Simulated assay, not measured.
Amino acid sequence: MSVGEAVETEPRRRRPGRAIRFALTITGVLLLLFGVPWWTLVGAGNDWPTGVFVTGTIVFAVALVSFPVLMFLGHGPRHRDGPSVVADTTLGVIWVLFVWSIIGQLLVLVLTIAGVDAPARSRVATAAVLVISLVLLGWGTVEARRVPRVRRVEVVLPRLGAGLDGLRLVLLTDTHYGPIERSRWSRGVTEVVNTLDADVVAHTGDIADGEVAQRRSQAAPLADIRASMARVYVTGNHEYFSGAQRWVEHMAALGWEALHNRHVVVTRGGDSLVIAGVDDRTAAGSGVPGHHTDHEAALSGADPALPVLLLAHQPQQIQGAVAHGVDLQISGHTHGGQMWPFHYLVRLDQPVLQGLSRHSERTQLYTSRGTGFWGPPFRIFAPSEITLLTLRSA
């Protein structure tokens, strides 16, 4: 057997074990995610009447069993919108209940130390968890569905020529047009962007969850966005679940430059700026022909004396930007955590959560909290944004 054959066949022998481990991991996570709220709200010393206990247990059991089925139906190959909305909303609700149920157990401990008897202490904690969760979910719904506020940031790029000083770049990212119809929201975003007198408008990916044919109406207002110099776009990881090449082609049809490992040059007042883009870091493993992160291709032919603005979906791609002498990378992907305290998990995978950061003497990174939302239709302590970056010369 050759080395090539060994590499080819090795994954096949491991697949059953990997599948079992994956299934066990998912099962354990779901039992924990649903079990902790059940324990806090239904069990754990509340001493509810039998009818309340049984009803609560049935509700949690049905939600636990149906959730993975709905997730598969909603986010599987067919992108069925009805199951997706139910599953995503369930995920958001159970996450908030999970977090505050843990905090609720701390409250039970405090009340126990204070001498409050059972079941009063457990019922007080249950009431607190429910009230706080309902308030946060209501507020989070409003935050997720509103047109984002404009976040204004100035970025000094020492290599930027004086002719481009004050260039206004509007960043959109993670619009995630999805199963909840948001065409009106999309038009609102376009209206706000068009008040900002942008020289360049950039979209750094995760444009939609679903195929072009499913999300065409929600994406349509992008065609009306105005920019005096360029409108540019790169893929995010979610494009690779939803027909990435078709989205690249559709964005081009809407009048946007799809920076598929390529660049454009904008010039004003005798000075120029290279605007480059690379595919998302998941592109190479997606199986979509010709899609992969390629900084060298993106900058091929660019004058090395010119400053470089790079569009890359994930902040983690900053390592490639530093290696290739990029002046400013703009990214999204993190959503600013979207639902507290999920941002702690995001930071395990990404170098930054949001905002402007420096990663070498030359290279800076701006990470947006995102324009839309993914999955759960909630934003809790992580507001969305339309970003206006004003570029300044030294």
Rank of each mutant, 00 (worst) to 15 (best):
1 M>W: 03
4 G>V: 03
9 T>Y: 11
9 T>F: 12
10 E>D: 15
13 R>K: 12
17 G>S: 12
29 V>P: 05
41 L>H: 04
48 W>L: 14
48 W>D: 03
61 A>T: 13
68 P>C: 03
68 P>A: 04
74 G>A: 03
77 P>Y: 11
80 R>G: 00
84 S>W: 01
87 A>G: 00
89 T>M: 06
108 V>D: 06
134 L>I: 12
141 T>H: 14
148 P>V: 10
154 E>F: 04
157 L>R: 07
162 A>L: 11
167 L>K: 00
172 L>A: 14
173 T>Q: 02
176 H>I: 13
178 G>V: 00
181 E>G: 07
182 R>N: 04
184 R>G: 11
189 V>S: 01
191 E>R: 15
198 A>G: 05
203 H>R: 01
206 D>E: 10
215 R>I: 03
231 R>I: 11
235 T>I: 07
237 N>P: 06
245 Q>V: 13
245 Q>S: 11
245 Q>F: 05
247 W>R: 12
249 E>M: 10
255 G>P: 09
257 E>V: 13
259 L>E: 08
260 H>D: 15
264 V>M: 12
287 G>V: 02
296 E>S: 15
299 L>M: 09
301 G>I: 10
304 P>V: 06
321 A>K: 04
326 V>E: 03
328 L>K: 09
329 Q>R: 06
334 T>G: 08
336 G>H: 06
338 Q>S: 10
341 P>I: 09
347 R>N: 10
363 T>C: 02
365 L>W: 03
370 G>F: 08
371 T>C: 09
385 E>S: 07
